[in-house]
């Protein structure tokens, strides 16, 4: 077991904060990706496809 000395609480809190921020960032990106993929699938299921609208110069 690593010995963290008299300031262990500060060290552990700093690492916990870093892990929490990274976990939040990863969770946001993953959930956003799932939400957007679901929306795209729903549009395609309804017959609305991006390529059908590209004749008017849309980039995406």
């Amino acid at each position: 077991m690593m010995h963290l000395g008299p300031h262990a609480a500060f060290i552990v809190t700093a690492y916990a904060a870093a892990i929490a921020i990274i976990a939040g960032l990863v969770a946001w990106i993953v959930l956003d990706q799932r939400h957007l993929a679901r929306m795209l699938e729903e549009f395609e299921a309804r017959g609305i496809t991006r390529r059908s609208g590209r004749t008017d110069g849309q980039k995406w």
Binding site: L36, A37, M39, L40, I48, T49, R50, G53, Q58, W60
Partner: peptide
Amino acid sequence: IMRRRVRSM
């Protein structure tokens, strides 16, 4: 990119 595609749709 997906968000912009959703917006286009």
